[in-house]
Design a protein around this nucleic acid. Structure first.
Lengths: 158, 158
DNA sequence: TATTGTTATACTCTATAACTATA
DNA sequence: TATAGTTATAGAGTATAACAATA
């Protein structure tokens, strides 16, 4: 507008977080989560609901505590998610190996929902990786897995 | 424990989000943000406070709305952050080019705090990239910048 | 005494809209 | 009428602690 603009220096180095992995991850997360939320919202899903149902469908009989751990949360985070999914008939809480344990199972309706969601997630993924070359888009999940391994498989010595 | 364990299938493919950039970013974000919070907490900082002070220090005179945009948020997110930082004497709100505008400036105390924070952030960064080779640790910020460009520099045509 | 699922609680983050002052 | 900063409000996400039932 006027010469006062000149008082704002050129972008250079804004200290501790300039160019860090940390800050890059944060920016990427904000972009990704917003796009995914917008993609899932018309179908009545949120990212955590999708993650929970996906993991249960792929791991019939998984316990709530283990599901929460796989998602990177504490035990108590599972209950409201499961209440919501069970209330919509997408999964069931059945008896587990213990009488104090519970086994989670996706219903036929839940599996159908996942099939419907799959292309939506694929489009989301294509959208966020559009600015990357195919090689880069392939390399990124590998780097991220090294940075923060998926503890879902996490079968301890047990 | 017993044969019931066999009912839980091997980890294979848990549907829509298996191996996606999206899910990898989410896992990485959770790990990074928790480590950074734990690192900054003893010094009375949080990740958003550090980001705000860093950007102000590197861009004297920046307006609150532009600071918020640089951090990927709406205008209203800036006020409580600035209240907190100003209350601790780390930055000042001064008159801007307009009488309705405000220019933000880090105080000497604020710049000192950033100097103290710098090694803490460097240690955090080293910790989260410890499982990556130097080449990978160098490549990751570039990929993330391509995925979600930093809009801080964002000098529009204006 | 430890573990599982759940509930209660509080706190943070975030988005939206409304309000005031200025342009 | 539009813009800048702020305030108010509400909602979602998360963590901690505490509870009841079972091992």
């Amino acid at each position: 507008m006027n010469d006062l603009d000149d008082e704002i220096p050129e972008p250079a180095d804004f200290g501790p977080l300039s160019g860090t992995v940390s800050y890059g991850i944060k920016r990427a997360y904000l972009r990704v989560i917003r796009d995914l939320e917008a993609s899932l919202s018309p179908l009545g899903f949120t990212p955590p609901l999708l993650a929970a149902l996906s993991i249960v469908a792929a791991t019939p009989g998984i316990a709530p505590a283990r599901l929460a751990a796989a998602m990177g949360h504490g035990r108590s985070r599972a209950a409201p998610l499961l209440d919501h999914l069970e209330g919509q008939g997408l999964l069931e809480r059945r008896a587990g190996p213990d009488r104090r344990s519970i086994g989670l199972h996706a219903t036929a309706q839940g599996r159908t929902a996942l099939r419907r969601l799959k292309p939506v997630v694929a489009e989301h993924e294509a959208r966020i990786t559009a600015s990357l070359s195919p090689a880069e888009a392939g390399a990124l999940p590998v780097l991220l897995e090294r940075l923060a391994p998926d503890n879902w498989a996490g079968r301890e010595s047990s």
